[in-house]
Simulated scan of single mutants.
Amino acid sequence: MAMLGEITHVTTYRYARPVSFGTHRAMFLPRRGACARLLDWSAKTDPASKIHWVTDARSNVVTVMEFGEPSSALTFTFQVRGVFFGIKGIESFPLDARADQVPVQYSPDEWTDLAGYLRPHADDPDGNLAAWTKSFVSGDQDETTDVLRRILRTFRESFSYQSRETEGTQPPGETLLTRAGTCRDYAWLMIEVLRRLGFAARFVSGYLYDQALDGGAVGMTGSGATHAWVQVFLPGAGWLDYDPTNQINAGFDLIPVAVARHPGQAVPLAGSWFGDAKDYQGMSIKVAVHKIGDISDPSEA
């Protein structure tokens, strides 16, 4: 199945008086390939900037913006139109036998390519993260898909989603202790759990399509903003999406933009400004993902 959709992503920073700006870098273009075909896109800023595009070491597209004049407001407007593909469910991809049970058995070549996604990144000084990780397996032929669904269900039933103004991602140990956080916090904690279970897992930043928003309602947590989730590499299927915030792992609801070993490598928008700290008056973000129509033949777009 495929969806013809439009994404509009607007971020505005406000200041008490004109300030100057350093280089800003944005990640907003969906990753092209099996999951998306982009038809049109644009990046605009107010005040105007010099814009160029680069790719990072993980093949994420980065928009680089250089500013020349001060302003009391800074607005970024990113727009994308494209065809987004989805699958009916993980069962659509039969796994290799070596991926049926935990721990997954990766080949030597896979180990070499996936090394950065297999090693835990966060510290666990009190051992709470390791202990919680063990609760998802019995140690006796646990099926991979059952363990993954168990983790998703635990987030859905035992954690409280909490948005916050401060930027960044909190440590996995803090998310586990408080049983609360944002989609980025959930994803980072799930990744650290998966890596301790022997899975190759990576952080994904992107957009969430919420069908309910097309009708004026809100159906899924985290819609109306950038979103974050997890991809797990399973032999026979490849990289598969798992969203601990909404307990989904299929369809075209998840539109990936950037993949990374850790959240700091997939920041939707980052940059600097120069002025008095008290001049900063806050920011606003508005993200809209709308379906224009369904497409049975992507060549129709």
Rank of each mutant, 00 (worst) to 15 (best):
M1I: 13
L4Q: 04
E6I: 08
I7D: 01
I7N: 01
T11F: 04
Y13F: 03
R17F: 15
F21D: 04
G22W: 06
R25G: 12
M27E: 06
L29Y: 04
P30N: 00
G33D: 14
G33S: 14
A36R: 05
L39G: 06
W41I: 08
A43N: 09
K44I: 15
A48P: 13
T55N: 03
A57Q: 09
V61N: 03
V61Q: 03
T63V: 14
F67R: 07
F67E: 04
E69K: 06
S71M: 08
A73K: 06
L74T: 06
Q79Y: 08
V80D: 01
R81C: 10
V83K: 02
G86P: 10
S92H: 00
A97G: 09
A99H: 00
P103L: 10
V104D: 10
Q105C: 07
D109S: 14
D113H: 03
A115M: 14
L118H: 03
R119A: 13
D123Y: 00
P125K: 01
G127N: 01
A130M: 11
A131Q: 04
T133G: 07
F136T: 07
F136I: 08
F136N: 09
S138W: 10
Q141E: 03
D142I: 14
D142T: 12
V147H: 05
L148A: 10
R150N: 12
L152N: 02
T154C: 09
S160N: 08
Q162G: 08
S163M: 14
E167Y: 04
E167W: 07
Q170I: 13
P172T: 05
T178R: 15
A180Q: 13
D185E: 10
Y186E: 07
E192T: 12
L194W: 02
L197A: 06
A201H: 07
V204C: 11
V204K: 09
V204I: 14
L208C: 12
Y209E: 07
D210C: 11
L213E: 07
G219E: 03
T221P: 12
A225W: 03
W229V: 13
Q231Y: 11
Q231K: 13
Q231M: 15
V232T: 02
F233L: 10
P235E: 00
G236T: 03
A237R: 01
L240D: 00
Y242P: 10
N249I: 11
G251Q: 06
F252M: 07
F252G: 04
V257T: 01
R261T: 04
L269C: 06
G271C: 06
G271N: 06
S272F: 07
S272R: 09
G282H: 08
M283T: 13
I285H: 05
K286I: 14
H290K: 15
K291W: 05
I295G: 05
I295N: 01
P298C: 05
S299H: 02
